[in-house]
Simulated scan of single mutants.
Amino acid sequence: MVFKIFWIIRYSLYSIFFKKAGFPGYLGSPIIILGMNKISIGKRVRIYPNVRLEVHGKDSAMIIEDNVGISQNVHITAGGNLVIKKSATILANTYITDIDHEYEDIDIPVLQQKMKVKKTEIGENCFIGMGVAIQAGTILGKQCIVGSNSVVRGIFPDYCVIAGTPAKIIKKYNFETKTWERVLY
Rank of each mutant, 00 (worst) to 15 (best):
M1T: 09
F3Y: 13
K4Y: 06
F6M: 05
I8R: 14
I8G: 01
I8P: 00
I8K: 05
S12Y: 06
Y14K: 00
S15R: 05
S15L: 15
F17C: 00
F18Q: 04
K20H: 08
G22N: 04
G22Q: 07
F23D: 02
P24V: 10
G25W: 04
Y26I: 04
Y26C: 12
Y26D: 06
L27R: 02
L34K: 12
L34V: 14
L34Q: 12
M36H: 04
I39N: 06
S40T: 10
K43R: 14
K43L: 10
R44E: 15
R46A: 13
I47Q: 10
I47C: 13
I47S: 08
Y48M: 08
P49G: 05
P49L: 04
R52P: 00
R52M: 12
L53I: 05
E54L: 07
V55C: 03
V55N: 02
K58H: 15
D59A: 15
A61E: 10
M62S: 02
M62G: 01
D66M: 01
G69E: 15
S71I: 08
S71F: 12
N73E: 09
G80P: 00
N81I: 12
L82W: 11
L82C: 00
V83L: 06
V83S: 02
I84H: 14
I84W: 15
K85L: 03
S87I: 03
S87W: 00
S87R: 13
A88W: 03
I90L: 00
N93K: 08
N93G: 12
T94N: 05
I96D: 09
T97S: 05
T97K: 05
H101G: 02
H101F: 13
E102W: 02
E104C: 06
D105K: 05
D105T: 01
D105G: 12
D107G: 11
Q112F: 13
Q113R: 05
K114L: 09
K114H: 09
K118S: 14
E121N: 02
G123A: 11
G123Y: 06
E124I: 15
N125Q: 12
C126W: 06
C126R: 09
F127N: 14
F127Q: 02
F127L: 04
G131Q: 05
A133E: 11
A133R: 14
A133K: 15
Q135G: 08
Q135A: 04
A136E: 11
A136Y: 08
T138E: 03
T138L: 04
L140S: 00
G141A: 11
K142H: 12
K142I: 10
Q143T: 11
C144W: 06
V146L: 03
S148D: 09
N149V: 14
V151Q: 11
V151C: 09
V152Y: 13
R153A: 11
G154T: 03
G154R: 03
G154V: 07
F156Y: 10
P157A: 04
P157T: 07
D158H: 09
T165R: 14
T165W: 01
T165K: 12
A167T: 04
A167S: 09
I169C: 00
I169M: 08
I169D: 13
K171E: 15
K172D: 12
F175N: 04
F175K: 01
T177G: 09
T177C: 11
T179M: 11
T179R: 08
W180P: 01
E181W: 07
E181Y: 13
Y185S: 04
Y185R: 15
Y185L: 10
